[in-house]
Design a protein around this nucleic acid. Sequence first.
RNA 1: GGAGAGGUGGCUGAGUGGUCGAAAGCGGCACCCUGCUAAGGUGUUAUACGGGUAACUGUAUCGAGGGUUCGAAUCCCUCUCUCUCCGCCA
Length: 429
Amino acid sequence: MLDIKILKENIEEITLNLKNKNYDFNNSEFLKLDSERKKFILQSEDLKNKKNVLSKEIGIIKSKGGSATAQKKEVEDINQQLLKFDALLLEAEKKFSNFMLDIPNVLDVKVPIGNSEEDNKVLTYSNNENLSENNSTDTIDHSEVGKILKLFDQETASKMSGARFNILYGEFAELHRAIGSFMIDTHIKEHGYKEVNVPLIVNNESLIGTGQLPKFKSDLFELKNKENFFLIPTSEVPLTNIFRNKILEENDLPIKFTSLSTCFRSEAGSYGKDTKGLIRQHQFDKVELVKFAIPSKSCEELENLVNDAERILDLLELPYRKVLLCSGDTGFSSSITYDLEVWLPSQNRYREISSCSNFKDFQSRRLNIKYKDKSSKKKTFVHTLNGSGLAVGRTLAAIIENYQDNNGNIEIPKVLRSYMRDVEIIKKS
RNA sequence: GGAGAGGUGGCUGAGUGGUCGAAAGCGGCACCCUGCUAAGGUGUUAUACGGGUAACUGUAUCGAGGGUUCGAAUCCCUCUCUCUCCGCCA
């Protein structure tokens, strides 16, 4: 959520900024809803004040043994009026807050202007080479290899569950588990994150806080037999909500959490896209990195966070590129986002494997997460950041494709071997 | 799932119908005092949203929502969470 005062003071500038995010900010509607709300607040508060004064008077009269019937009558009249005004106020507040919750975060000045994916700015290629220019691809698609090796079974998964699920057997299941363990170990041992095990089901307050609701409900799985239960689309949601309604100490910041969790996404609106393999599943595992930082340090913290995610790709020796998302491609809650895209030779293209964002105070305002600023002594909203470090299923796919030899055998990346019985290669049996 | 006990400010904890946004203590902050890191004294110390250049002032908030009442932290109802006991269970 945006700061209402800041929004009012910079309304032209913010309107332009949001336009770059393809959001049409209706500022006359905003001003109308705001003034309407204020009008009712004023009227309602005025009546309440009168009521409070009279009630106090009645108390004093009663304590002296009087009866105060005239005052009682007057308060009753006020109550009648209040009934009307409070209904109007409630309506106006609701409209206003729905309007506010719908507004995306303002973009950072560093974000390049653009409409879609094509306008994203590629910053670096690992090993300084753009592999999509080579155009020599005899790599077999990871799901095909999986089928040949009999370690990957989409048909059976679809029988028991439906589309966008998979079953991994044997070495693939092991490798999948090894990847997750390796990633989270690296973050806790080498990058200073604290591991957290989180609930996979959260309530809608949590999802409003991080920005998935109310706007993106269709992307979520909601449980049917219990009100207000949603499967998490990412552990960003529980991790960030840990400090909902909390005041943190400046000395404790930055706080760095990481979690390996299963994530659930409905993938509504992506029918027919990536139907084969591990790229787009209803259920997938992901290692998430979440940070709480003081505002003046959050930009720096984002750079570090991206480095932490990149480090995993470096250690796995997977080719990738780093991309700064353009304005139109930057997510609803984010102010600035870097994507890491791993090389998938079978598709001859780079695919997103991590997305790292600075949300600044957008989430913390919704969630009411503050810290006590040492110099000003004021309670100030913290900045929240997060990124994938990395998506486990997509990493598995990338390994299967990038570590494949001409016979369709798959070498295990060196750093993972100790996590899976020192197996060096997966061969057809 | 059954039975009971609870949810009060940063924390502990009083408060059962009127001047209670809420005692007291702890913690925090400011100042004073004291010749050594201790102790003491005084004051101050919630959040959000309005109005006002400002001093200041209004409204709301005692788990959430409803109700009773002129008036609710306090009484009633529903929900929720925590704790204890029983049952079931990985």
